[in-house]
C-alpha cells in the first residue's frame, strides 16, 4: 500500500457503497428535466437539450413532444460534492462513483462533459472494488 493509500484508509477502508468520489451520468436515463440544475447550490450543472416531436402512432392519436439531451456538464471546479443532484434526480440518471475527480492543469478541464460523466463506471458492490472492467451503462440500468 502506498503512503497515499495509507493516508486515505488509515481508519480502515471506506465501504465502496458509501464512497463519494465524483459524479457519473447515465445519459439514457436523463430526461433534461433540469431539476438537478435548479437544485444545485453552486449552479455548477449545465444542460443543453432540444425537443423532438414523435408523430402520432395511430390516426386518432396525438403527436408527442419529448426533450432530447444534447449536453450535460458538471463543473467540478465549483462542485461541492453535496449529492443534492443525485438525491433529487427522479430518474436516477446521476450516481456517485468511488474514484475522485483528478487534478487538472486548467479549470476548463474540470468541466466534465456528458461523454466524460458517462464514461465513469457505476460503483461496484462492496467487496468487488476494482472489478469495474466490463461494466457498461447498459449494466447500470439493470
Amino acid at each position: 500500500m502506498s503512503p497515499a493509500e495509507a493516508a486515505e484508509t488509515s481508519a480502515g477502508p471506506l465501504p465502496a457503497a458509501r464512497r463519494r468520489g465524483t459524479l457519473a451520468l447515465i445519459p439514457d436515463k436523463c430526461t433534461s428535466c433540469m431539476i438537478c440544475v435548479r437544485e444545485c447550490p453552486d449552479w455548477c450543472i449545465h444542460i443543453e437539450s432540444h425537443t423532438e416531436t414523435i408523430p402520432a402512432p395511430t390516426p386518432r392519436g396525438r403527436a408527442r413532444t419529448v426533450a432530447v439531451l444534447d449536453e450535460f456538464v458538471i463543473d467540478m471546479g465549483h462542485c461541492q460534492h453535496c449529492g443534492i443532484c443525485v438525491e433529487v434526480c427522479p430518474f436516477d440518471a446521476l450516481a456517485w462513483v468511488a474514484q475522485a475527480a483528478p487534478a487538472e492543469a486548467s479549470t476548463a478541464a474540470l468541466r466534465h462533459d456528458r461523454e466524460r460523466l458517462a464514461g465513469l463506471l457505476p460503483q461496484p458492490p462492496r467487496g468487488t472494488e476494482g472489478a469495474t472492467a466490463g461494466n457498461t451503462a447498459e449494466e447500470a440500468r439493470r
Binding site: P3, A4, E8, A100, A103, T107, L110
Partner: peptide, 21 residues
Amino acid sequence: VDRFVPGCPPRPHALVEALTD
C-alpha cells in the same frame, strides 16, 4: 497555476496525487 485540485474539500490524498503527478 499548474494544477487545480477539485473537491469541496478534496480528500487529503488528492494533494499527494497532484504533487506526485
